[in-house]
């Protein structure tokens, strides 16, 4: 048997062993130590690897891994936000909990309305027809490079007796809310008071209260962080997606997910 074949045989045997043996992870230390082994386990099951992006805990449990509750909490909280954003989220949650004497729920439009108008006694604003300011989808350098791809502006047909009326414009629609970014630094227009107090307040509405109160600003930032976190699906949703009964961009798009595996030792 050649060394290459022996190596392949060894890997296959190890994978078979991994599949047949349940792995139990009770703490973060074990999780770190067994990580490469988990990766190998998931790589061996391509259908499951893509499900990591739906819910990594459920995907690994399906691969035969058992987690303790603290480890599950650890994994999910780590994945939902990056460290800097996680810290900022925790900071905002703590500050708002103290200010409002309850856990902030800025994603709940009814709660948001009650908090702003009943608890903070803010003046309802007439936001009709206005949209918040959003950041560009590209950084300025890329934007400049892309702009250069567009044809140079020209004024042709100068011999026309009169310019034809503007017959056409072409432009890109603004990006949909979930992939555009609210510009927290842009100036918010001064608005007139609304005649009625809205019973619900969306995140886009909340944007116009940003300068009305420090609490409103914190709520806005927290809502943005919460919304932009990786959505981890419930067990029910996970099953529907896996069975193809519910559409999901990862399941649809991810053809193969490969996790780094440890070097195979001779």
């Amino acid at each position: 048997m050649t060394e290459k074949k022996r190596k392949a045989h060894s890997v296959a045997a190890e994978r078979k062993t991994a599949r047949s043996r349940a792995i139990e992870i009770k703490d973060e230390k074990t999780l770190g130590a067994l990580g490469p082994q988990l990766n190998r386990l998931l790589n061996a099951q391509p259908g499951l690897a893509a499900m990591l992006f739906i819910n990594p805990v459920l995907a690994m449990q399906e691969a035969g891994v058992k987690f303790s509750r603290p480890v599950i909490h650890h994994i999910l909280s780590r994945l939902r936000h990056r460290p800097a954003m996680r810290e900022r989220r925790e900071e905002l949650e703590a500050r708002l909990t103290e200010a409002l004497c309850e856990v902030p729920r800025p994603g709940n439009s009814a709660w948001l309305s009650r908090t702003l108008f009943e608890k903070l006694h803010l003046q309802p604003l007439d936001t009709g027809g206005l949209t918040p300011s959003y950041k560009s989808a590209h950084d300025p350098a890329v934007e400049k490079r892309l702009q250069a791809l567009r044809p140079k502006r020209t004024h042709r047909y100068s011999h026309l007796p009169s310019r034809p009326r503007r017959t056409g414009r072409v432009r890109m629609q603004e990006m949909p809310p979930l992939i555009r970014r609210l510009d927290l630094d842009a100036a918010v227009p001064e608005l007139k008071p609304a005649k009625h107090t809205p019973k619900r307040l969306s995140l886009e509405d909340l944007y116009f209260y940003r300068d009305s109160s420090p609490v409103a600003r914190d709520l806005l930032e927290l809502a943005i962080i919460q919304r932009r976190g990786l959505h981890l699906h419930s067990r029910y949703s996970y099953r529907l997606i896996k069975e193809g009964k519910r559409g999901n961009v990862f399941r649809r798009w991810f053809r193969k997910v490969t996790l780094p595996e440890p070097e195979v030792k001779e």
């Binding site: 503007r166 017959t167 414009r169 432009r171 949909p176 559409g247 999901n248 399941r251 649809r252 798009w253």
Partner: peptide, 16 residues
């Protein structure tokens, strides 16, 4: 001012 062609945000298949 006339007609306008709005390029809608491209739609990624299966993205809800």
């Amino acid at each position: 001012e006339g007609c306008e062609l709005i390029i809608d945000a491209p739609e990624v298949g299966d993205f809800d």
